[in-house]
Design a protein around this nucleic acid. Structure first.
Lengths: 168, 168
DNA sequence: CTTGGAATGTCAACAAGGCTGACGTATTGT
DNA sequence: ACAATACGTCAGCCTTGTTGACATTCCAAG
């Protein structure tokens, strides 16, 4: 599997060496730490964690989404999700309304307080992202997104694109 | 990904809109899932998880590193790390040698079996990364890395750069 | 030589957040 | 009427993180 000496030919494929790939892997690891650190900090002390943040984020993005939808989006079981939702509802951050067309479904919405927390969390996370984007510049940002999209599983990419259609 | 609407004034700052930042945030979330999925799959059934993968990765990268170094690199407590190391040593994947200069320190090395597992894990992870890199191309890859580096905490960046110096 | 502190290991207890399995209930569609 | 769906919940388990406390070993400074 190792690349051996540098490939040559028409287009330089030096960016595909094991060495370059390894740097990318380590960059992902360390960057993800930064990526999650600000929301984590905000949520600690509120007796909440990353799981709550994710639920809040996606309920904000898709108001009225159902429990099933959210399960698929987050890739967790209904039991895991239910624990988080129960806490969020108990805290008055999320509201679950019985579906009108199908009354088995629960449609999820952020309350005022929930929306406020969402803003606090995403402001922090966005601020870091904004600083990174600004430092790197628009061309780098385009590449950043391209590589991330190519790294996703099929199913994740479908979710990602469905969301992109909503607000972007 | 195209360009979006026409640029305006001097330098288009459209890539810094909340909308663009939000897409980047969601891309990170979904991409990270793909990023970890292959090693996770390999390790399940071996009674190991992501924490073991991380330890194996960094011991491979810095053979002879100490427990303290690894703690700082991984950002976990010695108790968490110790539990993982104990398992890895028990499985015969990692060897801890008493330091010669300072005999309080334990220097960590992969055994043959450990190196074999490391290869299996990183081959899988690298393969996904390679596919993503190839799809996106060298310019995108450069941008990808730039943005990730800009997203790291100071401390993470120091670790990242120290590692980069070792093999690249 | 003694002693302080650093590096490490380990025990106990706990929490978050995943998981599976099983069961119950309301509702819908056939 | 009945099967399937959407959801909630209880119970139990795992991994991986946390604190706190304590023992050991060793380096280095007084």
């Amino acid at each position: 599997m190792a690349e051996g000496p540098a490939p040559q030919g028409g287009s330089s494929l030096l960016f595909l060496t094991d060495e370059q790939l390894r740097k990318g892997i380590e960059a992902m690891f360390f960057a993800y730490r930064g990526f999650t650190s600000d929301p984590d900090r905000i949520l600690e002390g509120r007796e909440m964690g990353r799981a709550h943040h994710r639920a809040i984020h996606f309920i904000h993005r898709s108001p009225g989404t159902t429990v099933s939808n959210l399960m698929a989006l987050l890739g967790v079981t209904k039991q895991s999700l239910n624990r988080v939702l129960r806490a969020l509802i108990a805290e008055g951050l999320v509201e679950a309304r019985v579906g009108r067309r199908d009354r088995r479904e629960r449609h999820l919405y952020l309350t005022e307080a929930g929306a406020a927390l969402e803003r606090e969390l995403s402001d922090a996370q966005r601020e870091r992202m904004r600083a990174a984007y600004r430092m790197a510049g628009p061309v780098a940002v385009a590449g950043f997104r391209q590589v991330l999209e190519a790294m996703m599983d099929e199913e994740s990419r479908r979710h990602y694109e469905a969301l992109a259609g909503k607000g972007g």
